[in-house]
Amino acid sequence: MSTSTGLEQDAVRAEARRGLLIGLPAIATLTVLFAIPLIIVVAYSFGTRTRTGRTDFSTLDLSAYQRLADPLVLEIVSRSLGYALLTTVICLIVGYPFAYHLATRTPRVRAVLLVLVMLPFWSNFLVRTYAWRVLLGSDGPLVRLLGALGIDDVVLLFTPFAIVLGLVYGFLPFMVLPLYAAIERIDHTLIEAARDLHASGWGAFRAVTLPLSRSGVIAGSVLVFIPAFGAYVTPELLGGSRTTMLGSYVVRQFLSARDWPFGSALSVAILAVMLLATTAYFRTGGRSL
């Protein structure tokens, strides 16, 4: 009688080898094209800018990070945070009832409506944002419409209003889709049970639907907040010089100011905020995005 001890370990090892082998091309690519670039950015953030705009690595220090405390930088950071939070809240207020409405349609209607939500999401982001520039412009239809209503000299473009509008427009589907998924999953007999136990319609919503769709609320909020905070295209197209957001400010360090260490430090800081937001998301019991 042959006894095959150790057989299982061989199988486990063979599986591990195969898994690593299949993943290897992607691991190698991401190491070279993502992990190493990330390390280089961190390295730059400790360098100093020479007078000619080059980066000096001979003295590594925190001087680039110290400049994050500049009042100008703080103003831009808090503005970005503010716009991003406002965008998230508006998306949530508009998106939740919208997603609820979607989730309570018949399957056939639901499928059509979902495609209608997805279509703009898949369309070119730059173009969709550009459309608002046309609509909000000083000779655009909205200003003319307001003028016809007797409201003259309204400036819509290049204002915080335009930026937040653009951000909401760009990222609303990110809020709607996870909310929809979460609400659609809810077993409706639970709501029946709540009604049976004397909850009013609103009471059942608060006691059952809302808590059970929490994962969607959190996922949607994170998915809107992160790109809104780091946005570049939207504030560039719809904002003005007094509404600079962090994304544009970083780009400026590279394309015009040539202050790469400071730009790198800003990038690292943005990355830190993103990681914080996502960690908070997973801590609150979020599932994979």
Partner: peptide
């Protein structure tokens, strides 16, 4: 599934591996 230890024979042939 592989056994951690033991022998599996089918019609006399060891197939554990």
């Amino acid at each position: 599934e592989f056994p951690t230890s033991g022998s599996v024979r089918i019609n006399g042939r060891e197939v554990g591996l």
